[in-house]
Nucleic acid binder design. Structure first.
Lengths: 152, 152
DNA sequence: GGTTGAAATTTGAAGCTTGAAATAAAATGG
DNA sequence: CCATTTTATTTCAAGCTTCAAATTTCAACC
């Protein structure tokens, strides 16, 4: 067994390295979306959540799912609305809630961008085969566990 | 062997899951720094890079290392300067370059925050033991490889 | 049923972030 | 040696993001 730094130090270095990878990948995707589709990552993320939900979605659910603030969700949805990709309607039973959904144009637009986005991810992680992904999934699950515990 | 979705789809899902974990962790750390130390993640990141360098650092090296734009580095360094944590001086040989370094107060401040930061990371990733970290390191290396290739 | 408190969203101010344009200094190359 | 191009940094406008305050609506309780 070779000499290893203390666990806390290794956890820190692992975190920094993980952060670097995701930041680099996000930067690449941001550039990709900007150059090829004249859009931004947050707009794409919101559209992805709405597309996936496949039904009008509460603003609060949206921001919770994306791990962003309510105020942030408002701004990005406003932008999608201005672009004709999304629509907001007041809730009928509870008049406090605002429901958001993609327009038909928004759905078509998203499908196009999402397909290119998936292809780009595929390129960026070309080194990952099924087994690597299995292992990564297990590790992420493990990290999510303690992570979520601390958040509560 | 059980049935599995196509690789491209699994790579995408893995990426989304990785992004969720880092976003959640970043949110937690941001809140931690704000509440306990009245500071922000970007300021901490810049200070960390300067502390680590342990010598005056070029603005461009700083932004490259942190994977942020030049303009961004300027703003955050300005803020650190205003707080008395950093100092900027013009380069002597090449008058275009600007060198940044932490002040003594900045170094002391960083040591304090960094220690709490490391302890917090340690808590967040308490589930990761040496072996898990080894495996994660290998996987990150693998991802970095194709990732970096695509960036060029 | 009216008050009080909780919940959903938006607004506003401050700060972060980017890409592009501007500025200034250095390197290159007739 | 002068003009051109490249490099380092800052500035600017636009957009993203957060937190806290304000608004509106609902729920609960006397």
């Amino acid at each position: 067994m070779t000499e290893r730094p203390p666990l806390s130090r290794r956890r820190l270095r692992m975190w920094i390295r993980m952060l670097r990878l995701t930041r680099g990948t996000e930067n690449h995707l941001r550039e990709f979306l900007r150059v090829k589709y004249d859009t931004t990552l947050p707009r794409f993320d919101v559209a992805a959540a709405l597309y996936r939900a496949d039904a009008p979605m509460k603003m609060s659910d949206l921001s919770q799912q994306l791990l962003v603030s309510n105020g942030n969700a408002t701004v990005v949805v406003e932008r999608l609305e201005k672009d004709g990709h999304a629509r907001r309607v007041q809730g009928t039973e509870d008049k406090r809630v605002v429901l958001v959904e993609l327009t038909d144009a928004g759905r078509a637009w998203f499908r196009e961008v999402a397909s290119a986005h998936e292809a780009e991810i595929d390129r960026l992680f070309a080194s990952m085969d099924h087994d690597n992904i299995d292992t990564t999934r297990d590790l992420l699950r493990l990290m999510e566990k303690t992570n979520d515990d601390q958040l509560s």
